[in-house]
Design a binder for these strands. Structure first.
Length: 482
DNA sequence: TAGGATTGCAA
DNA sequence: TATTGCAATCCTA
């Protein structure tokens, strides 16, 4: 028999995900107007090195306070009957064990590969720096926005147009537009690119590796306002993947089993599939029953051959961004953007209806909810300020889709974990990156793993007209698995 | 030394 | 003039 697990902090987080880094101290103050004695006042302020040095009587009082408040909180939550909350019981609580398991499993890194990349990138940084110095006949710190600003706009007098709070912006958008005419802008872009890779990723990863070349990430279950997970030390959820050079960093993520493999499973176009399921749009559902490439289909519907444009339109539908933003993103006129969207909605009338009804529902009830019972209040939905109201509408439309996809991956993690535990497989779940699960595959297990994990992930939603689709790849490292 | 400002990576 | 994160560097207070 296994013990029942309950978590007062997770309960608070589910109700209210806006407080960054919830703590018992914060909750005690807010709920019971009770000021707990702080850890710092016992340890740091007394100049002690750690808790074990604290006087026994003080230490026991402090500890008793923790227990007292936790219990008080637990009783209050039980009183509210939310102890039976399905989200807590069926998703978040079981996930604790899964995350614990991932954290103690670790990820194997090919240290020499990282070092090799570091040298390649460092050489590029030096080459670019020298070339830039030569061009302006002066040495300066290219990493400093202020100095770049000075060189570009006060020394070379390049055209400037976008402001930050304190000076003219020199971000990549500005540099990209300058790069069309001025070579130096492109060099600064490249410099930043490589120095980003070394300073943010490679240095940090090398620093965090243990002596057996394993990485020990922490996953946070109660941080984001969208109920997704986040990770730190390192953040494994923002390792480059799009850029062809940068994604080389992923080639250092390898199997712990000698000469064996990494397998990844990621939900394919999960948000637009969820839109089809939630809106019950017949045309969109029928499309997904027969075809897979929604971007191609959208391109056809709005009479374009440009896949990028189609992608942006699909993106627009899910995120409900402004026409202005859409037109800017794909470099077309606002009228043209408007026309694309009209064409899209003619073919998917129920999507349009669903989006409008979601907003109406929210206006009436002040909240939106997902297929997994999560609810959230949107207090600005009836605001008289149009800009604020628009933002609230975007949230009302986008959030149910985003939250549902966060729930889906969490549920699949729970199920996959149970499956691995109840099998004799030795492969390990090592990472979660929002809509992707990554496994370290034990020799000869790939067929079974592929079949079972795909099946579990694709069938999280029951009794829906279409399944979710999972793309699966197996390779020697994480880069190739992408 | 702490923290704001700027920048950029992921989903 | 989409959202949510984590983290780096520079630079001022």
């Amino acid at each position: 028999m296994s013990a029942q697990i309950y978590d007062t902090l997770l309960w608070e987080y589910i109700q209210n995900p806006w407080d960054r880094w919830l703590s018992l101290d914060k909750i005690a103050e807010r709920k019971f107007n009770y000021e707990k004695k702080s850890f710092d006042s016992l340890v740091k302020q007394q100049k002690l090195s750690d808790f074990w040095e604290v006087d026994l009587e003080k230490a026991s009082k402090y500890s008793a306070e923790d227990v007292y408040i936790t219990n008080k909180l637990f009783l209050q939550q039980k009183e509210n009957k939310v102890i039976d909350d399905k989200v807590l019981k069926e998703i978040e609580i079981p996930l604790i064990k899964v995350l614990e398991n991932i954290e103690i499993t670790w990820v194997k890194i090919y240290r020499d590969r990282l070092k090799e990349l570091w040298i390649i990138f460092e050489n590029e940084i030096i080459r670019l720096s020298n070339s830039i110095y030569k061009e302006v006949d002066e040495e300066f710190n290219i990493s400093s926005p202020k100095q770049v600003w000075y060189i570009l706009f006060e020394k070379l007098w390049l055209p400037r147009w976008k402001k930050t709070k304190t000076w003219y912006s020199v971000n990549s958008e500005v540099l990209e537009s300058l790069a069309k005419e001025y070579a130096i802008a492109q060099k600064i872009i490249d410099y930043r690119h490589f120095s980003k890779l070394n300073s943010t990723y490679i240095n940090w990863l090398l620093e965090l590796l243990d002596d057996k070349d394993f990485l020990h990430t922490s996953y946070n279950q109660a941080v984001t306002t969208t109920w997704r997970l986040s990770s730190t030390n390192p953040n494994l959820q923002n390792i480059p993947s799009w850029d062809w050079i940068a994604s080389e960093i992923r080639s250092a993520f390898i199997s712990r089993f000698k000469n064996w493999k990494i397998m990844s499973f990621d939900y394919s176009q999960v948000e637009i599939r969820l839109l089809a399921i939630m809106s019950e749009d017949e045309n969109l559902i029928n499309f997904f029953k027969e075809w897979f490439d929604i971007h191609k289909k959208t391109a056809e519907l709005i009479w374009t051959t440009d896949r990028k444009v189609a992608k942006a339109v699909n993106f627009w539908v899910i995120y409900w961004i402004s026409w202005f933003w859409l037109s800017k993103m794909i470099n077309i006129s606002v009228a043209q953007a408007n026309d694309y969207i009209k064409k899209f909605f003619i073919h998917y009338p129920w999507v349009k209806k669903y989006l409008e009804e979601t907003i109406e529902f929210c206006e009436k009830n002040w909240y939106v909810e997902t297929i997994f019972w999560r609810k959230r209040f949107i207090k600005w939905i009836n605001d008289s300020n149009k800009i604020i109201k628009k933002a609230a509408e975007r949230e009302a439309i986008n959030m149910p889709i985003q939250w549902t996809s966060a729930d889906i991956i969490k549920i699949s993690m729970n199920k996959v974990f149970d499956f691995l535990n109840n099998s004799d497989l030795k492969s390990k779940l090592i990472m979660q990156v929002h809509d992707e699960l990554v496994f370290d595959v034990f020799p000869w297990e790939e067929e079974k793993l592929k079949e079972w994990v795909s099946d579990i992930m694709e069938n999280i939603l029951k009794n829906k007209p279409i399944k979710l689709i999972v793309d699966n790849n197996i390779w020697n490292n994480w880069k190739e698995a992408k």
